[in-house]
Simulated assay, not measured.
Amino acid sequence: MTTSTRGAQAPAVLVLEDGRSFRGRAYGAVGETFGEAVFSTGMTGYQETLTDPSYHRQVVVMTAPHIGNTGVNDEDGESRRIWVSGYVVRDPARTPSNWRSRRSLDDELVAQGVVGISGIDTRALTRHLRERGAMRVGIFSGGSLADEAALLARVQQAPQMKGADLSAEVTTAEAYVVPAVGTKRFTVAAVDLGIKAMTPQRMAERGIEVHVLPASASVEDVYAVRPDGVFFSNGPGDPAAAEHPVALMRAVLERRTPLFGICFGNQILGRALGFGTYKLKYGHRGINQPVQDRTTGKVEVTAHNHGFAVDAPLDTVSDTPYGRAEVSHVCLNDSVVEGLQLLDRPAFSVQYHPEAAAGPHDAAYLFDRFVSLMEDQRA
Rank of each mutant, 00 (worst) to 15 (best):
P96I: 00
S79P: 03
L248T: 07
A12I: 08
Y176L: 05
V114D: 01
L151N: 13
V291R: 14
D293M: 01
N333L: 13
L340F: 10
V330C: 01
E75M: 13
R6V: 12
R345L: 14
G138T: 11
V299W: 06
F186Y: 15
H244E: 13
D221N: 13
V301T: 15
Q341W: 01
L213D: 06
L248I: 05
D319W: 03
V59F: 04
P236A: 04
A357E: 15
G207T: 09
T3H: 05
L332S: 07
A134K: 14
Y352Q: 08
V88K: 09
S141V: 14
I208L: 09
G116D: 08
R255E: 08
Q58F: 10
D221V: 06
V177Q: 12
V336S: 15
F370S: 04
S335I: 01
L105F: 12
T172G: 11
A189P: 04
A37P: 06
Q377V: 03
L259H: 15
G182S: 05
S79Q: 02
A215S: 14
Q289V: 12
Q351T: 04
D368V: 05
A272H: 03
E243Q: 15
T2V: 15
N69K: 15
A247P: 04
A241M: 02
L343V: 00
E75P: 07
L269E: 03
I120N: 04
G297P: 04
L366W: 05
E355D: 12
P179C: 06
A150T: 13
Q351C: 03
L314H: 07
E220L: 09
P214E: 07
